[in-house]
């Protein structure tokens, strides 16, 4: 599982360093996926039943990381949406999504 986390981080890092704005947004999303999986993995996989108390099981998987990840998923949705909006608007204004062309003046 850790390998999956590693791969998603790797792809995410590679993508955010690309030139196209779309790649950057996708890369960001991949990084988010990676960290969610990382959190889940850290908590230990398959240590018990789903964290629902009204079932007969007595061992549960850890509810806290799940709550954290739930929060993280929603937040990352907000961030992704925001970056998409920025990318979209940037393209509308400048007619390019190439980060090289979007560079500001060197003295900024």
């Amino acid at each position: 599982m850790s390998i999956v986390v590693g791969v998603s981080f790797m792809v995410g890092t590679y993508l955010i360093m690309a030139r196209s704005l779309l790649s950057v947004v996708i890369g960001l999303n991949m990084l988010a996926h990676g960290s969610h999986l990382l959190l889940l993995t850290m908590a230990g996989l398959k240590t018990g039943a789903p964290p629902l108390l009204d079932r007969p099981e007595t061992a549960f998987s850890d509810p806290l990381p799940q709550a954290l990840i739930l929060t993280a998923i929603v937040i990352s949705f907000g961030i992704t949406a925001f970056t998409i909006a920025i990318a979209y608007r940037t393209y509308k204004v400048y007619q390019t999504d190439d980060l090289e062309q979007l560079r500001g003046s060197p003295d900024e």
Partner: peptide
């Protein structure tokens, strides 16, 4: 909050 935020984001971008 969640429902409205998600809708606002999408509808705004779509409506532009």
């Amino acid at each position: 909050g969640v429902a409205a935020s998600a809708l606002v984001i999408i509808v705004t971008i779509a409506g532009d």
